[in-house]
């Protein structure tokens, strides 16, 4: 099999672009900071204003790193789902993971007005929301895994995942109907997604979980390539279908679940990045694709975040809207130009 070596130049260029995007992302923001001050804060040198250094070290760098983790995590889980379900429309959230997280957060925020004031307001901090989102996606994941162990057909699993999603979305709607405007607004703000709320400690936890998920994906590389031939062929190649399917589902859930917990339900990236990547890396060999989507997803997310924070203005747009507004036309343009999508 053609190894990653053949794509060395493409990888080199991608890493270079990633570094450029990272620097651009850190240099731009609502407060204008000179480039010189940025570099000296990065190398821990003398900075003119102490507040600049604080902004860069405790706000912009964590936000940029979050963008990288979110972008690469979602992209890898999207790729895994597309291969597992042999469906180019699959994304990281097909198994209902994001709806599970939404349900958790919805219950935390809006449940207070429905079930009375059992939850105190202090619970609704960013950590509280992350915990609620994790719990919600974890519960849905458990349900999916139990079903997965009973269902032989992977396509049935896809439908079941979508059904779980529908149920949770419906419950969220009911909660929204009964809750007051303030709570509703708070929930909607969460659903816009946000990269900037993580402290260094939270970022550390997020990184560890992401590395775990990507590690599991790397362990599945060989099986993912077998799955390109379909399940029957994969089994005839000695692959333990149930076990590999479990590993792939768990890897996806860890990646997509942690992203949703820390940054909200971010749409589009997971679905689109694998397709965008295949425009450059014209192959379905996962040994090439997995590292490629990691880089690609990180770059795209950094670009989207740079645009979202609107340089030199006080406003920052919801990241969830930007990913789709920027990303969707790109995908449409690429597919129209190619006239044919090869999966």
């Amino acid at each position: 099999m053609k190894s990653a070596k053949a794509y060395r130049i493409s990888f080199f260029i991608l890493v270079f672009i990633l570094i450029l995007c990272l620097l651009a992302n850190i240099s731009m923001g609502s407060v204008s900071i000179p480039v010189k001050a940025i570099f000296s804060s990065l190398i821990n040198g003398e900075v003119e204003k102490e507040s600049w250094k604080y902004i860069i070290l405790n706000y912009r760098i964590p936000k940029a790193l979050t963008a990288i983790l979110v972008g690469s995590g979602l992209s890898v889980s999207g790729l895994l789902m597309q291969t597992l379900f042999r469906n180019p429309l699959a994304g990281p959230f097909v198994l209902g993971i994001s709806s599970g997280a939404s349900l958790g957060v919805a219950i935390l925020i809006m449940g207070t007005s429905v079930f009375g004031t059992v939850f105190s307001m202090s619970l609704i901090s960013s950590t509280g929301i992350a915990v609620a989102a994790s719990l919600g996606s974890f519960l849905v994941l458990m349900a999916v895994l139990i079903v997965a162990s009973k269902v032989r057909d992977t396509m049935a699993l896809l439908i079941i995942g979508l059904m779980f999603g529908s149920i949770t979305t419906a419950i969220v709607s009911v909660l929204a109907y009964f809750s007051n405007t303030e709570k509703l607004q708070q929930y909607i703000f969460w659903s816009f997604g946000s990269l900037g709320n993580l402290s260094w400690n939270q970022l550390l936890i997020f990184s560890i979980i992401s590395v775990l998920g990507i590690g599991l994906s790397i362990l599945s590389l060989k099986n993912l390539n077998s799955l390109l031939l379909g399940e029957n062929y994969a089994r005839s190649l000695g692959m333990n279908l149930k076990k590999s399917r479990f590993t792939i589902i768990i890897a996806t859930s860890i990646l997509a679940g942690s992203v949703t917990a820390f940054a909200g339900p971010i749409a589009f990236i997971g679905l689109a990045v694998p397709h965008l990547t295949k425009q450059i890396f014209i192959t379905n060999n996962h040994k090439v694709l997995v590292p490629a989507v990691i880089l690609y997803g990180a770059i795209l997310m950094l670009i989207c975040d740079t645009i979202a924070q609107l340089p030199h203005s006080e406003y920052s747009l919801p990241i969830n809207a930007i990913t789709s507004i920027i990303g969707a036309p790109v995908v449409i343009w690429l597919l129209v130009r190619k006239k044919k999508m090869v999966f």
């Binding site: 060989k222 031939l229 295949k278």
Partner: peptide
């Protein structure tokens, strides 16, 4: 059955035979 993904080269596909 048709293979779900044809976006691999002939030699890559044949090499999958060595997976075991």
């Amino acid at each position: 059955e048709k293979i779900p993904s044809k976006n691999i080269t002939v030699i890559e596909l044949i090499a999958l035979g060595r997976q075991p």
